[in-house]
Design a protein around this nucleic acid. Structure first.
Length: 412
RNA sequence: GCGUCUGUCGUCAAGUGGUUAAGACCUCGGAUUGUGGUUCCGAUAUGCAUGGGUUCGAAUCCCAUCAGACGCCCCA
């Protein structure tokens, strides 16, 4: 036997039995997002590598070690690891800054990251996300979070927790980083290897380290004092507290998490995540925040923006399984040409109907009908002669004989 | 990149050194050539992830490789 070719590590087939759940995710996205005025945008899966290096940030793990990058005709090309950079690229390239603000866009589609797969993490996965451009006020942050919660509710997901934080602006954040590094300097040699790396790369990240020895260090009063201090500047603080009061007014429950830091470089001020307790250790279904300098950094007009992305596989695993939908009818007939004819008559009218293409025995056909359909439409020699169809309700076993043109009125 | 655990039919599995590798579901066929879902009968792994080794004898023990699950890092 020739060697089996299997799906690549970290990739998965989405099988027919899961299709209905995916349709639900997609249908609700379209419905809910359009209620808030969002339009769908579809950007290419392939983009110039440089877009992500400049957009996502070349100190991030995503760009440094997780991208699928290859050379083609002297160009470096990358499979998108996320879609904010692509949407921003399109926003700039298509002159959307000239449109009346806000510009509200949503997307869905596959993303690619070369990581070790585990629960809730694949190398090819799907995200659905929104981006809003042109509004610097905290109303935009609030609406975008409200939209996320609304969408999750539409899927029946209620027991999720919204976590928020403010990273401040580049100015006040630098100040905060400096203070963290100062207070941790004497402890540097006692930090774990990961934390020592984070010390230079992203000091904000090392505060929620899970290693016990690090936890002990961070628990020290003088260090806690720095962590808990309100470092953000007045303007940022106002933005943050306005956001919080909007959320309260809108009945969006949230918890503040000072340790919430997103791993992408472009965020400023608001960051948030939505988490579930019913997932593994990868428990965030939604992550997002404000990125006021990204559009400018990628060569566009200075345009404030907020957005988020959700992992569709993670959402999907929280959704209850659904029974596969049955056919409306299955035609039981020994004459394929007559069965074809009846099937097409009904399909034109919107009925879901199949018949046995292999022309098996009557009892086999009926058996199949009972498995896959609500009604069996029996079209035998007698029925064909008299232009009738016998309709059998496969749940109640009731059977009636009706005129062929009347079938549609009897299988509702 | 690191760590832990796991690989027996399409699926779920029993078997943990001794003749032909249980069972269940699914699928297919028959009982049943115009009446299904219940029932009964039958079919379906010369092979236990792959390759070596130990042994009189290996699905079972050892080694390597591969694959998967979970966790770290990071993220959706």
């Amino acid at each position: 036997m020739t060697k089996m070719i299997k799906v690549l590590k970290g990739t998965k087939d989405i099988l027919p039995q899961e299709a209905e759940k995916w349709h639900r995710l997609e249908k609700n996205a379209l419905e809910i997002f359009s209620k808030y005025g969002y339009k769908e945008i579809r950007t290419p899966i392939l983009e110039a590598t440089e877009l992500f290096a400049r957009g996502v940030g070349d100190t991030t793990d995503i760009v440094n070690k997780e991208m699928y990058t290859f050379e083609k005709s002297d160009r470096s090309i990358t499979l998108r690891p996320e879609n904010t950079a692509g949407v921003v690229r399109s926003f700039i390239e298509n002159g959307m800054a000239r449109l009346s603000a806000p510009v509200k866009l949503w997307y869905k589609g596959p993303m690619f990251r070369y990581e070790r797969p585990q629960a809730g993490r694949q190398r090819q996965f799907h995200q659905v996300g929104v981006e809003m451009f042109g509004i610097k006020e905290p109303t935009a942050d609030a609406e975008v979070i409200l939209l996320a919660v609304d969408y999750l509710k539409s899927l029946g997901l209620n027991d999720l927790e919204v976590e928020i934080n403010s990273l401040g602006c580049p100015n006040c954040r630098e100040e905060y980083k400096k203070r963290i590094k100062e207070v941790l300097k004497p402890e540097f040699n006692h930090l774990c290897e990961d934390c020592q790396n984070r010390y230079e790369k992203n000091p904000l990240r090392l505060l929620d380290c899970k290693v016990d020895s690090c936890k002990e260090i961070f628990a020290k009063p003088e260090i806690q004092k720095v962590i808990q201090s309100d470092f953000i500047c007045e303007e940022c603080a106002k933005h943050y507290s306005d956001l919080k009061s909007y959320l309260t007014k809108l009945n969006v429950p949230y918890v503040e998490n000072k340790l919430l830091v997103r791993g992408l470089d472009y965020y400023n001020r608001t960051v948030f995540e939505i988490k579930s307790n019913n997932l593994g250790s990868q428990n965030a279904v939604c992550g997002g925040g404000r990125y006021d300098s990204l559009v400018k950094n990628l060569g566009g007009e200075d345009t404030p923006a907020v957005g988020w992305a959700m992992g569709m596989e993670r959402l999907n695993s929280l959704l209850p399984d659904v029974e596969p939908e049955k056919l409306d009818a299955y035609i039981v007939c020994n004459s394929p040409s007559d069965a074809f004819e009846l099937a097409q008559e009904l399909r034109v009218k919107g009925i879901k109907v199949e018949f046995d293409l292999a022309n098996k025995k009557f009892t086999k056909q009926l058996e199949k009908a009972s498995k896959v359909a609500k009604y069996a439409l029996i079209l035998g020699e007698d029925e064909i002669k008299s232009n009738k169809v016998s309709i059998k309700n496969l749940e109640t076993s009731e059977q009636v004989s009706v005129d062929r043109n009347d079938v549609i009125n009897n299988i509702g």
